[in-house]
Amino acid sequence: MSFDALHLLALRRKADLASLVQAGGIDGAVLEAALAPAIADGRVIQARGLYVLAPAGAAWLQSQYPQVFAATRADSVLAAEYQRFELINRELKTLITQWQTLEVGGKPVLNDHSNADHDARILDRLAALHERAEAQIACMAARLPRLGRYALRLSEALDRAEAGELDWVSSIRCDSYHTVWFEMHEDLLRLLDKRREE
């Protein structure tokens, strides 16, 4: 349990209890209990209502990964599904960039969201991508059930964006589509011992 809690915290590095509960779908009291020993031995620092993963905690996690994720890393079906996910990931990155940046006469210009047409088009494509992502996450969740939670969180973000709360596409101040997506991506990289390729 302590491992799960620390891994969850590592994906954000710094978080309050409520957002960890939301991200992990784990009961708050259970999480607190799981984090307590890590706070006691300095792997996690608790300050001003936030939990912060300490360098010792990060090192401990790295030492645990090969053993805890051994079965996952050996799962060739999951590895193949992950390759497919990476294709969607590339599209997502392009899409988020197009959400933030317009190409005007061949030059990138920040999107100030004054062109409703453009925004609607990108949201539409995000929704279409989401349908494929959901199916892909379901395939991966068939091997590792906890991944299924990402599909729910992505759906929530998309729903809010489509309801007109544009921050929910890529803001870093909320669990926007991009925030959740990158958390999931980081999770997968750690799970499968892959390097981020930009």
Binding site: K93, I96, S170
Partner: peptide
């Protein structure tokens, strides 16, 4: 500033957002 990655990289997306 990053050493690697292009305009769709994580740093680029977050930088624009901020």
């Amino acid at each position: 500033i990053t050493e690697q990655g292009g305009s769709t990289s994580h740093a680029a997306v977050v930088g624009r957002q901020l």
